[in-house]
């Protein structure tokens, strides 16, 4: 069992989400940076869809009440277990009585903590992800609170004694580019042509700042005002994570994992699936730049991302197959 010592409600239990129920109004949800959670699971020999923790509010502390192993991926955070310090993207053992501390990121925004065997929670409609809007999944359908106790599935995880790490080139590059705008590849969406030529140009040629209204449902952005050529009334329609809507204020909103399944605002573009982790790791105040690409480029990027994950899964890294770095 693990016990939560310091947290905030934005920190939740997540897995890879709950697809298949959009027609019931249920969001896919799941880890905002699903690649980071999947890799944390691989490092422990877990199935990629085992439930772990998504941390968005720091500092986060937990105490282990059993000997187990955990892996922490995602943002570049100072991490320690009692007085031992660890790099991010590292898996190690933790003993009963020891405390894990994850501090505010130097780069990135969300950290993922996976546990050997995964969190032992009931599956609700095929997933253990927290759906805070619907009040189900995860731990009683809510964010983590101090004093919460979570059971772990039993697991044998023979980590090397020094632990093990994973280093991904694109993640390092993203961390090092802390002061440049984050580039997000986009495909045009249904109403792209309904915006003025000026708005279409501004959308891809200017920077967008993530405002403080940013959470798992979506990020409100600020920048130039995007105007429609003429007013548009749309009937409610299904939307996917990554959809960039433009409400009457002209300031875009990027819809994310826990977004409503339907919306009614005009949509200028969609962030491609392969780049959603970049948004998940973009903190409040970060600047974004939208880069239009073709559907072929978007599909190829997804193919590469999936191949990368499958390759890591095939290497059984969590069973001692990789040397510690």
């Amino acid at each position: 069992m693990i016990e939560i010592l310091s947290t905030g409600l934005p920190n939740t239990v997540q897995d890879l989400g709950r697809p298949g129920y959009l027609a019931l109004g249920i969001s896919h949800g799941g880890a905002m940076d699903s690649q980071a959670l999947a890799i944390a699971n691989f490092m422990l020999g877990n199935d990629r869809s085992a439930a772990g923790l998504e941390i968005a509010l720091y500092p986060f502390r937990l105490k282990a009440h059993v000997d187990t192993a955990l892996a922490i991926t995602g943002a570049d955070c100072p991490i320690s277990i009692d007085d031992r310090r660890y790099p991010p993207w590292w898996a190690t053992t933790i003993r009963a009585g020891e405390t894990l501390l994850v501090e505010a990121p130097r780069a990135g925004a969300r950290s993922y903590i996976a546990f050997a065997g995964g969190l032992d929670l009931p599956s609700v409609m095929g997933s253990r992800a927290t759906d805070a809007k619907g009040g189900f999944g995860g731990l009683a359908g809510r964010g983590l609170a101090r004093g919460d106790q979570l059971q772990l599935n039993s697991a044998v995880c023979p980590l090397p004694s020094a632990g093990l790490g994973v280093a991904l080139e694109e993640r390092q590059a993203a961390s090092n580019a802390n002061f440049s705008p984050i580039e997000l590849r986009v495909l045009p969406a249904a109403e792209f042509d309904a915006f003025t030529a000026q708005a279409q140009a501004a959308f891809t040629s200017s920077d967008w700042k993530i405002t403080s209204e940013a959470n798992r449902m979506g990020y409100r952005l600020s920048g130039e005002t995007l105007s429609l050529a003429s007013p548009l009334e749309l009937l409610s329609h299904g939307i996917v994570p990554g959809t960039i809507q433009v409400p009457p204020s002209g300031q875009p909103i990027v819809q994310l994992a826990d977004a409503n399944t339907c919306g009614g605002y005009p949509k200028i573009a969609t962030v491609i699936e392969a780049d959603l982790w970049r948004l998940a790791q973009a903190p409040v105040g970060a600047r974004l730049r939208f880069v239009p690409v073709s559907i072929e480029v978007a599909t190829q990027a997804l193919r590469i991302a999936r191949q990368q994950l499958d390759a890591l899964a095939a290497r059984n890294i969590g069973l001692g197959g990789l040397r510690p770095r």
Binding site: A23, H237, I239, V240, A298
Partner: peptide, 22 residues
């Protein structure tokens, strides 16, 4: 095709782009 979600006089269709194409 993975999932379909009817809206108001419209329909969202989700598919795997590595299995089929738009």
């Amino acid at each position: 095709v993975r999932e379909t979600a009817p809206g108001m006089n419209n329909l969202l269709v989700l598919f795997d782009p590595l299995v089929t194409d738009a």
